[in-house]
Simulated scan of single mutants.
Amino acid sequence: MDLNLKNKVTVITGPAKGMGRAVSLAFAREGATLVLAGRDTAAIEPVAAEARALGVQALVVACDMTDPVQADALAKETVEAFGRIDVLVNVAGGSGPIGKTGWETTADEFNDIVQLNMTGCFNTVRAVMPTMIGQRYGKVVNVGGTFGLKGRAGRLAYSASKWGLRGITKSFALEAGPHNINVNNVAPGMVDGPRFREKVCANLVEKHGITLDEAMTKHAQDYALRRVSTDEDIANACLFMASDVSRQMTGVDLPVDGGWAAL
């Protein structure tokens, strides 16, 4: 199926590694024009080079999305370079403290992850809205998490930030809908990769005295499909939500977790 994303100007935050890299290259394979934004431009450049090798334009922009001035500058630079903004995919985010109860979580730990996962996404969505409204077209995909659909012990700060992101997504969807703009939330479950293995699974290893392989299997057993998601699974969901195939979906939480949050 042709998702009709060729030449669509697509801003992606957090593109340097993991899900962000997979999302960036998935859009590149669809022929989208990329604007890759993040704090560490040196880490983003190799992804941009991979995208260009696939035959698409890829602009790298330095942006700390928690700073509203930099988010506005990202939108301005994108329009100056390509004349429009068709898609925004907010992948940038963090995990916060793992294995801490709410009362063990410090105020700084809580505020830091809320600032990144909620305020950062608010800033970028807010920044692209005037352009999308003016052209009467836009797709916003926020990458949340299933702990924002069901609470999780030991992940209070992260869970709170992703619950808050859902509210931001739904309110923007209601406000932007009359302007032909879709705003949706893709909610990954556990996604295999360094952060999952070295932080999440490592916490289980320490807590239960099991091996890393046993910890990974324990997580997989929580899901109906008995497997942990991959970066590509998340990228495919983002492609779907950014395309006109999903034109009648907005304000939606789409779990990509092998069957956990919705079952």
Rank of each mutant, 00 (worst) to 15 (best):
F147Q: 03
A160G: 09
E198V: 09
G177L: 12
K150L: 12
V191F: 12
A202I: 07
N184P: 10
I133H: 00
A157M: 07
R166Q: 13
V191K: 02
R197Q: 13
G154W: 01
T169N: 12
N182D: 04
A157W: 09
H179A: 10
N180S: 07
H179M: 06
L165H: 03
K207T: 13
G145I: 04
G193F: 12
P194W: 00
G134P: 13
R152P: 01
G134Y: 01
A160C: 14
G209H: 08
R195P: 10
K139W: 07
E206N: 12
W163L: 13
V205A: 01
N182H: 10
A157T: 06
P188M: 08
L165K: 01
R136W: 05
K199D: 13
G164A: 15
N184F: 09
V128P: 13
I210K: 01
S171G: 05
A187F: 05
G151I: 08
A202T: 12
V186Y: 02
G144P: 02
G167K: 07
P188G: 10
G209W: 07
P178H: 05
S161R: 00
M132A: 09
I133S: 05
K207D: 10
G164V: 06
A173S: 15
T131Q: 13
K170L: 07
K207R: 15
I181G: 05
W163P: 12
A176H: 01
D192I: 11
G144F: 13
S161E: 11
V141F: 11
P178R: 07
W163A: 13
G154H: 06
Y137N: 08
L204C: 01
L204N: 03
R136C: 07
V200P: 06
R155T: 03
E175L: 06
A187H: 12
F196Q: 11
A187T: 05
A176W: 00
K170P: 01
K207W: 03
H179C: 04
L174E: 15
G177K: 06
L204T: 02
K139C: 14
R195G: 11
Y137V: 04
E175I: 03
L165T: 03
E206I: 05
N142T: 03
P188S: 11
N184G: 07
S171A: 15
E206K: 15
N182F: 08
A202V: 06
P188C: 11
G148V: 04
